[in-house]
Design a protein around this nucleic acid. Structure first.
Lengths: 146, 146
DNA sequence: ATACAGTCTACAGTCACTATAGAGGCAAGC
DNA sequence: GCTTGCCTCTATAGTGACTGTAGACTGTAT
């Protein structure tokens, strides 16, 4: 039952110390108790909450979505459908992104296969980037970072 | 042969005006001539360069990679292999990201399928996020934004 | 007593832009 | 010449989800 310092919480939930403090500033983690000298003190509840956050982040949920999930979690007798729809939405996003990346993969592969070496002047990879518009009928959306 | 203002260049290459100016500040586009009143003036060379940049961005290349590609482009009698390896590297990144997202898709689907409605207290989606560690043997890396 | 790891705050930097504010420029119609 | 209305200019701040840095204090082991 002894409280954890931020470093111990960090190891317990596998989230970096600086990230925990960041989560506090954005209101994702509550403001913890402090020791006499001002150090943050946490309990098992915090380990669980932080682990939940980490898992949700690993599943690609945005901070905002996680805030929603946590809010719903504290109202346990409500209907599950709100939770379900957040997850559904996340799946849709993941699938959109997958489709984009698959198109990219095809194009990069094609470019690279056509490259038979030689001088840059006649490089097929360069040509492919230049003629990108003609490569696939589908237009790419603005690409989010890899 | 009359020069283009930034707005015309923007429409010609399908890149936003603000983005062109941004590319100038980071040295991706050179500093253009100016009219007497200080407006930027561009030529067809700039349309081509900007289009190249846009195509490369659509293929997911980073700004730094594009800088490299442009540098190589201006040395046309060098070997093509440097270009090829930049493209190869990009393909590897795309494929890594694809694998990550496919794992995510499987997990989200499984979570959602298990959800049979009911109260949040017994919600399988919530449970799945909590028990995420046990879901798939593979560990997710830190996830980049969708 | 000293060394060293941990913790504190506050702020700047990342990436690739986007948005906003406020001022000045340019061409067409009246 | 004047007005209308879009175009362009600079400078600065914001985005998301953190990470990195500086400089000072704290806690613990030897």
């Amino acid at each position: 039952m002894k409280p954890l310092t931020i470093g111990r919480l960090s190891r317990a939930a596998n989230v970096k110390v600086t990230t925990i403090r960041y989560y506090e500033t954005i209101g994702l983690m509550g403001t913890p108790d402090r020791s006499a000298s001002g150090q943050r003190l946490y309990g098992m509840v915090d380990v669980e909450r932080l682990s939940f956050i980490r898992h949700a982040r690993e599943l690609g949920f945005s901070i905002d979505a996680i805030k929603d999930l946590i809010r719903l979690q504290t109202a346990p007798d409500q209907d599950c459908s709100a939770v379900d729809s957040i997850a559904q939405q996340q799946l849709v996003e993941v699938q959109k992104r997958l489709a984009q990346l698959e198109a990219l993969e095809r194009e990069l592969k094609r470019m690279i296969e056509n490259c038979r070496g030689g001088e840059i002047d006649g490089c097929q990879v360069m040509a492919a980037i230049n003629n990108h518009a003609e490569c696939e009928s589908e237009k790419h959306e603005r690409l989010k970072p890899l």
